[in-house]
Design a protein around this nucleic acid. Structure first.
Lengths: 163, 163
DNA sequence: GAGCTATACTTGAGGTCGCAATCAATATAG
DNA sequence: CTATATTGATTGCGACCTCAAGTATAGCTC
């Protein structure tokens, strides 16, 4: 019983313990985010998510975005963004702006301090990413890795694609 | 100034927004773990970490491990393991066992219910992983992905490798 | 065996995040 | 125009996890 789609090509050692691409993916994520986060926090008092959000804003038109779009682009929930921005606001890195055409939406805007912050943090953080992640691969491998990872689903798959 | 090791080959679109392998890695992890976790929780009342730990025990000799080794193998901290096992213990899936030769260590042992639980959960979870992750790749690609991910560091790199 | 260090584990406090519920404003229908 | 559904945002609550500190045991050196 229990149909076999699997075949999960377990690169097992003696014991049969699974060490698949997925498990490596999980472990690598845990280890890398732990180390990167700790460095980023020590040097700049930012979490990885903070940095992510600041970068999104930095490259957005007018350095501002609707909070909901921000949430989608960094894959946080709406409530996650609310609380994350609360922190960045009280740190003076982003501000709020009302939308004139739609009173429901609020924009998050990068402040001067926010721009300064990210320009300060960027170099060291990119260097850390390079050291712990990028440097492990040749340019070709990097591209291929990006391509492979790009195939993975970024949203819920239960989207009722009937009709 | 600020030497340029970077070159981070940003596959940018119009705006210059970075969409590197690293960012895809982060996003894919967020999306996949969210979906997998929600399925696993709905069907079996287990978190991804719970499942991870149960699998480690399942394949361990005597279905038992020192808590500290468990922690290292799933990349949690010692305190993380303590609390996670608290949950699994009160659910009756694992038990504690004292070590006779060293009174400091406690073993975590899979109970009968624990074995049953993981055997129940395994098929659906592996199928979910296959659907959301594995099925995106050919066997060759899978292997290559595993190889690439296997190059990433799993522990702290600041290990003072002088001398 | 006294002192020192290292290891295994636990606990308190705090941070991040998701889900569900809620409210306000907008869009759509009849 | 009114009723209903949808969307953006916030908040209460709880889950999970880490760090720092504390306890207990083990090993090592003199």
């Amino acid at each position: 019983m229990s149909s076999q789609v699997l075949s999960t090509q377990e690169t097992s050692d003696e014991s049969g313990l699974p060490d698949t691409a997925w498990v490596r993916f999980l472990r690598a994520h845990a280890a890398l985010t732990r180390e990167l986060s700790s460095r980023l926090e020590a040097l700049h008092e930012l979490t990885l998510s903070d940095f992510d959000v600041l970068v999104q804003l930095y490259y957005a038109e007018g350095r501002r975005m609707r909070r909901i779009d921000l949430a989608r682009s960094v894959l946080l929930t709406a409530s996650g963004i609310t609380r994350l921005l609360d922190g960045l606001e009280s740190a003076g890195l982003v501000g709020k702006e009302r939308c004139e055409s739609d009173a429901r939406v609020t924009y998050a805007v990068l402040t001067k301090a926010g721009v300064k912050k990210i320009e300060e943090a960027r170099d060291s953080h990119l260097a850390d990413i390079e050291e712990l992640f990028g440097a492990r691969f040749s340019p070709q491998e990097r591209e291929q890795l990006a391509e492979l990872l790009g195939r993975l689903p970024l949203a819920h798959t239960s989207e009722a694609c009937s009709t």
